[in-house]
């Protein structure tokens, strides 16, 4: 019963009640993934499993045997060639002031990474006008797709700005 977290393989917890979130935080002391509501209603616990964003608070850790989990701690290392420094999204969140208290931030960033991947494979959203057309990540689209991540400080504009900035940089390169 093993799971891969940020590239390292580790044993799953014995108690099946342990959520993936609590396993990360209390079991592995990976505190970057945050517990906001533990009810699947705020998005602070968002992590990437096999590249897809999910809520780790509603995930029982034992369900994820053999899966590959990336948390905010794994994102920094993945972000640059040397494995040091920040992921471009992390950098953009700082530059655009895409957070205040910083508590929802890891979830927002992991969610944005997953969101971009979904859009790249053409997954539509609630606000996509034409289900048959290719997806363009307009501001409205990003807002809808990020709506599962609450922010109480009110950094919404900065968060969307940061995501747009990274996306436009990708297009330019």
């Amino acid at each position: 019963m093993e799971i891969t977290i940020n590239g390292s393989t580790t044993a799953l917890p014995q108690d099946p009640r342990v959520s993936l979130l609590d396993f990360l935080r209390e079991g592995l002391h990976l505190f970057g993934t945050k517990k906001g509501c533990d009810q699947g209603a705020c998005g602070a616990c968002t992590v990437l499993v096999d590249g897809e964003r999910i809520l780790s608070c509603l995930a029982l850790a034992v369900q994820f045997e053999g899966r590959d989990v990336v948390t905010i701690e794994g994102l920094s290392a993945a972000g640059t060639a040397g494995g040091e420094g920040l992921h471009p999204l992390q950098q953009a969140f700082i530059g655009c002031d895409g957070f205040q208290c910083g508590y929802c931030t890891p979830g927002q960033i992991c969610s944005a990474v997953g969101m971009v991947a979904e859009a790249k494979r053409g997954s539509p959203s609630h606000v996509t006008a034409d289900l048959a057309a290719a997806v363009t990540l307009t501001r409205n689209e990003i807002q809808e797709r990020m709506s599962g991540n609450l922010c109480r400080c009110g950094a919404h504009n900065g968060i969307i700005d940061a995501i747009q900035q990274v996306l436009s940089a990708e297009v330019l390169s």
Binding site: G40, G43, T46, E52, R53, I54, L55, L58, A59, S111, G114, M115, E118, R121, G122, S123, P124, S125, H126, T128, L131, A132, R145, S147, G148, N149
Partner: peptide
């Protein structure tokens, strides 16, 4: 996001996409 559903049963795609959040729909 299944192409056949989007093309032939758009109401189903639309209803799913109106529900919950992307993270929850992924699970």
């Amino acid at each position: 996001e299944h192409p056949a559903v989007r093309a032939r049963y758009p109401v189903l795609s639309r209803a799913i996409l109106a529900g919950a959040s992307a993270q929850i729909r992924n699970m």
